[in-house]
Design a protein around this nucleic acid. Sequence first.
DNA 1: CTTGACTCCGTACCATGATACGGAACCTAT
DNA 2: ATAGGTTCCGTATCATGGTACGGAGTCAAG
Lengths: 142, 142
Amino acid sequence: MVRSQGLNILTIGKLAAAGDVGVETVRYYQRRGLLSEPDRSGGMRRYGSNDLSRLRFIRSAQAAGFTLEEIRELLELDATRDRARALTLANARIAALDDKLAALQRARAALARLADACTSTSSEPCPIITAFEPPGHIPGRP
Amino acid sequence: MVRSQGLNILTIGKLAAAGDVGVETVRYYQRRGLLSEPDRSGGMRRYGSNDLSRLRFIRSAQAAGFTLEEIRELLELDATRDRARALTLANARIAALDDKLAALQRARAALARLADACTSTSSEPCPIITAFEPPGHIPGRP
DNA sequence: CTTGACTCCGTACCATGATACGGAACCTAT
DNA sequence: ATAGGTTCCGTATCATGGTACGGAGTCAAG
């Protein structure tokens, strides 16, 4: 009895749906070298759960701010076991993420200030532009 | 005696430098309607500190994840004083930012796991792909 | 008044990450 | 076995956010 655990049972459409991307996107990732060309049964690609893992990894890594090219490199590293390089990439991206997180948190604070001023004060204009200026900043002064 | 406080004293080059963008980018923002066409003195654009505020606002808003089109709308709102619309946009963007922040924090955690596994364990491969799988997830099982 | 830096303009081009097209081949259920 | 949905492929196109080009005009310092 076979549970079809690692078997190549997915068509490109099923894989794409499971990974929440379009079929064309899967083909695109293949062209870019992010997904390897799978076995074919009678001309049609057949994917397994490992391909789905890869696809999901790609989307997660993308959310982490990696470019497709960087992701391609990460996937290569996963195969070649170059620990040092993997560590370098990971740490660089963690630093970049920390910067980005800080920036987004500042932006969130600015928007919250804006929404608050827009809600509570009755004075005419919502201070959209000034909401993004550094706190304590006097416009027109460097 | 004039302190040149709000005067249009900046050339496009100075404005671009002060806003940390390229000259072409300023012209591009003007084409996109993000910066208004300033006064000209003998053919050349002359900008004031209000333009610099705008430019800086654009960069901040961009960092907050607004597209240029959304920023254009925000800047229009700043002129037309439509409080309700401004509030709606701000709140929508705060929600989107919260989602994004959560996603980036998950990604950061994944990368930290990866870096940790890559550093501490001596077992051969850094688990690059699996580092991004949800904690407790068993590969091959939905 | 010359020189060198800056600005003008339209249009073209770039990178990234997809998405669309369209006719032929294939696969599956009725 | 036939219809309808998928998949095949290469190539074209899109959206976003810029960047580059190149020849002419302008400005400011020496």
